[in-house]
């Protein structure tokens, strides 16, 4: 036991434990963007910060004006990855069933369809809105074991610097599974 404690203190065990779910935090040495990630029952789940200026640059290059995309880029956006490496079957999720907790209080995600509706009324070019829609993490999806996955943007809808927990949920043949990332921080 003494050796485990010492090993943890010197960083040999980089995992943190939140509510029985091991998670790892990584700071990119080049960009300083923080990634939170975990691996539960053969499924990989991660969130990587996208700074508001980075999100603006991405969408301005897709054809949005700053004014049109400001509400989205300032809403705490992450690059999200979910991948079925070796789950016991096909996984299925509905993103709006995922739970965001701010100080243990639930916080609702704005659906992708709602973002598309909002942005479509700003006068944005159709090609820009199409890029926005398909750059988002899928609202619903199925992944076969062996490496099906997606990488996409996810807006949490919180101010910069906010801290929250996210619980991603999926099901395999009607059995529910979840992965939690705790104390995730919105980029400032």
């Amino acid at each position: 036991m003494k050796y485990i404690i010492i090993a943890s203190m010197v960083g040999l065990f980089p995992f943190s434990i939140y509510a029985d779910v091991p998670q790892k935090r990584h700071i990119d040495p080049v960009t300083s963007a923080i990634t939170w990630k975990t691996h539960v029952e053969g499924v990989y789940f991660s969130l990587t910060q996208i700074l508001p200026e980075q999100a603006k640059a991405f969408f301005v290059n897709r054809g949005f004006s700053l004014e049109q995309i400001e509400s989205y880029t300032s809403s705490c956006v992450y690059m999200t990855v979910l991948r079925n490496d070796s789950a016991p079957g096909d996984i299925h999720f509905i993103r709006n069933n995922w739970l965001i907790l701010v100080k243990n209080m639930p916080h609702k995600l704005v659906p992708v369809s709602e973002w598309v509706k909002r942005l479509s009324t700003t006068g944005a070019k159709k090609s820009a809105v199409i890029a926005f829609r398909w750059a988002q993490f899928p609202p619903e999806q199925e992944y076969k074991p062996g490496g099906d996955w997606n990488q996409g943007m996810l807006s949490i809808g919180l101010p910069p610097g906010s801290i929250f927990d996210v619980i991603a949920k999926w099901d395999i043949a009607d059995k529910e599974y979840e992965a939690k990332l705790a104390e995730v921080q919105c980029a400032k």
Binding site: D28, T31, T48, L51, E53, Q54, K56, N61, M79
Partner: peptide
Amino acid sequence: HYFVGLTALLLVLFNN
């Protein structure tokens, strides 16, 4: 400004 921002985002997306 946005060229720098885009470069940084590409680094986020590809560097890691």
